[in-house]
């Protein structure tokens, strides 16, 4: 059963919910992350920015357990997290989306989002095989939650459509829906607006802020569109070549010389 709500119940809005401390990660000889530390406060939108190859996605992969750093610690809900598998981390209330949409292409929108409820469903395989009784009741209860999410994201029209057939922007939205279905404490979004037009970006920004305000979800997002980042995030952390070069409010980061250099490029001595 999803333990996210129980784990985070003692933490008030504005207190630290997750922090990474001195994380170093390398693949063979390639250093992806070097001594990175930052924190996420409950209820904030925290952007992770940086040029391509800066280690942003690697950072999310460490938080959700796809990568295990050689050094450093992840603290979650007030205690040091053991080394866990990604599916175990999902049970702790961390959900995510992917840079290159990772939907279940053969399944309908409804089924994709239903799969997001996995950690909230506890019936065993035998009762599912017989269907009547507990498994059926659980299915109906979770289906109602999924319908709420579909309504929230305004995707009623594509409920039964196999997601492989949907246009890119809608696929991104369904993927957000699947992550939201887990009722996450912490939501990780890897470039939720990549490849979208302005209108789609505005919609997505609105959904992200709605999620933050309505559900109190903490959100960490990677995004390249600086306008969007400055608009919707409370704090920003900047990575470059696997190192942290800036951390603060959007305004602070915007005026940070190291950040400006990283983005505009300066000749290396």
């Amino acid at each position: 059963m999803n333990k996210g709500a129980a784990l985070s119940s003692g933490i008030d809005t504005g207190e630290e919910i997750l922090s990474v401390r001195n994380i170093s990660l390398s693949f063979g000889g390639v250093k992806a992350l070097t001594d990175i530390s930052f924190d996420l406060l409950k209820g904030e939108v925290r952007a992770i920015i940086g040029p391509n190859g800066a280690g942003k996605s690697s950072m999310l992969n460490v938080i959700n357990g796809f990568y295990h750093p050689q050094q450093g610690e992840v603290w979650y809900c007030g205690s040091k997290r053991k080394s866990l598998k990604p599916h175990q981390i999902a049970y702790q209330g961390i959900a995510r989306t992917f840079q290159n949409i990772a939907l279940f292409k053969g399944m309908s929108t409804l089924d994709n989002i239903m799969t997001g409820r996995f950690t909230h469903m506890r019936s065993n395989i035998v009762s599912q095989a017989f269907w009547r009784g507990p498994a059926e009741r659980e299915e109906i209860a979770n289906r109602e939650k999924v319908e709420d999410i579909i309504e929230f994201l305004e995707i009623q029209a594509i409920r039964k459509t196999p997601v492989g057939r949907l246009p890119y922007g809608l696929q991104k939205r369904v993927e957000l829906g699947r992550a939201l279905a887990a009722e996450p404490v912490l939501l990780l979004l890897d470039e939720p607006m990549a490849g979208m037009n302005i209108e789609e970006k505005e919609d997505m920004s609105r959904f992200i802020l709605d999620v933050q305000q309505e559900f109190g979800t903490t959100i960490a997002l990677i995004e390249h569109d600086m306008g969007v980042v400055m608009d919707i995030s409370d704090r920003v952390v900047v990575l470059d070549y696997g190192k942290k070069i800036g951390d603060g409010t959007p305004d602070e980061v915007r005026n940070n010389q190291a950040v400006i250099d990283a983005y505009l490029g300066v000749p290396h001595e």
Partner: peptide, 20 residues
């Protein structure tokens, strides 16, 4: 639930892991 999980794993391992 398990049936959906089976189909999910058939489609995408990483995404399946990320939903638990």
């Amino acid at each position: 639930k398990t049936g959906r999980a089976l189909r999910a794993v058939a489609d995408d391992h990483q995404a399946a892991l990320s939903v638990g």
